[in-house]
């Protein structure tokens, strides 16, 4: 474990050196995700000026939900973005083969190979939204609520990574896994808003099948002392279970990997 931590640090410092060579690109990359989020937040603001609430959720409460999912997404974006490129950049080009002849876990190597600076923008937006919402709503912070906030962000990040891992493994068979990953990943967009605005089927999907709701709606409900909030404690369990399944599926896929011959 210590070896992998020190290795990750080495990979990260190398990556940061590369990024700092192109500072303008680093800044534009981080700003790009801020612009993307700003578009949606501005749209919510425009709409919420016209109505007092959205199914009982005020503007600031919606910002809390939106901020939590953005924070969880940023963990995945910064530390596991390379899962998206497994098929296109590593398997198709034959570059993945070099991971297999090195004395470290190939999955670790894939993840450590690229820290994604674009995720920094998402992280900053997420922090800003949660702080803004917390102040505006006057949330009374207790030890349990602080613990919930950390658990929601870390577990939420774990859920994002695990679902991307489960879907990116398909690239061992179909080479380009991006469409499959997006098919699952885009469901997180539902979880940017309170789940109560959707029909029951979507609630079940977002809670029990692709549980992005555990990273946003349920922890927000807990922090706001709303009903259903206690379900947020299921997030760490769901994240651990999905990560375990994802890693086992990765090992299964790896056994069936045949190089593209490039």
């Amino acid at each position: 474990m210590t070896r992998y931590l020190s290795l990750y640090w080495l990979f990260l410092t190398q990556r940061l050196k590369v990024l700092m060579e192109y500072r303008a690109n680093f800044i534009i990359g981080a700003l790009s995700t801020i612009a993307l989020q700003a578009s949606s937040i501005l749209a919510i603001w425009v709409v919420m000026r016209q109505v007092p609430d959205l199914n009982g959720w005020t503007y600031d409460e919606i910002l809390l939900v939106y901020g939590l999912i953005t924070l969880a997404k940023s963990i995945n974006h910064m530390f596991a973005d390379n899962l998206w490129t497994l098929g296109r950049q590593y398997i198709r080009s034959g570059g993945f083969d070099r991971f297999l002849v090195r004395p470290i876990d190939p999955l670790f190597h894939l993840l450590a190979d690229r820290f994604c600076q674009d995720g920094v923008g998402n992280f900053l937006v997420g922090v800003a939204l949660v702080v803004k919402a917390s102040v505006a709503l006057g949330i009374q912070w207790t030890l349990l609520k602080a613990l919930m906030l950390v658990a929601a962000v870390v577990s939420g990040g774990g859920i994002f990574i695990a679902l991307n891992l489960l879907t990116c493994v398909t690239s061992f068979w179909i080479v380009d896994s991006v469409p499959v990953t997006r098919l699952v990943f885009d469901n997180h967009l539902f979880a940017q808003y309170p789940l109560t605005i959707y029909p029951k089927a979507i609630n079940i999907l977002l809670t029990w099948i692709v549980p992005y709701g555990l990273a946003s709606f349920y922890p927000a409900s807990y922090l706001l002392d709303r009903s259903l909030g206690n379900l947020a404690w299921a997030a760490p369990v769901a994240a651990a279970l999905l990560l375990f399944l994802g890693y086992r599926f990765w090992q299964f896929g790896l056994k069936h990997y045949g190089s593209t011959g490039t």
Binding site: I34, S39, A43
Partner: peptide
């Protein structure tokens, strides 16, 4: 000038989402 493409492209796309009026009709804006 920048040789940067990905970030610039996403930045422009992000701006166009709202500024094109595809998310909210213009009449609802202040």
């Amino acid at each position: 000038y920048t040789t940067e493409v990905w970030g610039l492209g996403v930045l422009i796309f992000g701006m166009s989402l709202f500024l094109s009026g595809s998310l909210v009709p213009l009449t609802m804006m202040p």
